[in-house]
């Protein structure tokens, strides 16, 4: 059960960004993905979520044992996947509150998506915003337009909370976040784990890992799984860096082939 990526190879444009990637996110588990810039972390998140410009060349993506590889993003979302994006785009003209009302209505199966089917959603979004340290006015602003880096991250978290997904993919929720923001993200990730949800946490640095303890760690290098392990792997990366890991792997590989 949970999310499973099986032997996944994918490309965007002419570039193959993922090569034979395998990983699992069980419910009640935090799986951390690490890797240097350009190693394919965001690509992995997008492919799991079904972004159309990415083409799956090989392999499969399973949610609760069923393939979701050929589903459009919205169907994956409605099955309980949520992606909190690294750098979410601006959507001029659309208020954050309208987006939340619309997707909540969609999830509740409402005919009319514009007027809240469940009036409680309004109260709830203000509560969550406040809890996350967002100014209330932000809900009336256009999605991500003029949001600061921290506001964008918090807004993604807020939307995730209100979406009530089963599996949340966080793409670098920590970058550019102050210490308070970091705590908020960490608290939410822990609460997801405690309530039996699955978390795929992409992070460039191990900074956030001081607050949340991963169950598994996978390191991506050039679109491949370079190493998997427990929290100690994150520790190693944090202390020695990717270059060290890369060299170590090359050496091991060399010694095997020798």
């Amino acid at each position: 059960m949970g999310l499973e990526v099986v032997n996944l190879t994918a490309k965007v444009g002419d570039k193959v960004v993922l090569r034979n990637v395998n990983l699992k996110v069980d419910y009640g588990e935090i799986h951390v993905i690490m890797g240097p810039n350009g190693s394919g972390k965001s690509s992995l998140a997008y492919v799991i979520m079904g972004r159309e410009i990415y083409e799956v060349l090989e392999g499969d993506i399973l949610l609760d044992g069923e393939s979701i590889k050929d589903l459009p993003p919205e169907e994956r979302a409605l099955k309980g996947l949520f992606l909190a994006q690294q750098d979410p785009p601006q959507v001029p003209g659309v208020r954050l509150s309208s987006l939340i009302i619309t997707y909540t209505n969609k999830r509740l199966g409402a005919q009319d998506l514009t007027r809240p089917k469940d009036p409680k959603v309004i109260k709830r979004m203000y509560e969550v915003a406040t809890k996350l340290g967002l100014p209330k006015e932000i809900l009336q602003r256009e999605v991500n337009v003029g949001f600061s880096g921290g506001e964008k991250k918090r807004s993604e978290i807020m939307q995730a909370i209100l979406f009530e997904p089963k599996i949340v993919i966080f793409d670098e929720p920590d970058s550019g976040l102050d210490i308070d923001g970091l705590r908020i993200v960490a608290d939410y990730i822990r609460s997801l784990k405690e309530s039996g949800k699955g978390v795929l946490l992409i992070t460039h640095y191990a900074r956030l890992l001081g607050y949340v303890k991963p169950d598994r760690v996978t390191v991506l290098l050039d679109g491949r799984v370079a190493a998997t392990g427990g929290p100690e792997l994150a520790q190693l990366v944090e202390e020695k860096g990717y270059a060290y890991l890369k060299a170590k792997l090359a050496k091991e590989k060399g010694s095997i082939s020798a």
Binding site: P73, V91, G93, V94, S98
Partner: peptide, 20 residues
């Protein structure tokens, strides 16, 4: 992609944008 990843079909996403 952003809007469809929030559970909206492309058409629903477009109508949200148009109404906004």
């Amino acid at each position: 992609f952003y809007l469809t990843s929030r559970g909206l079909t492309e058409d629903e996403a477009k109508s949200l944008i148009v109404l906004g």
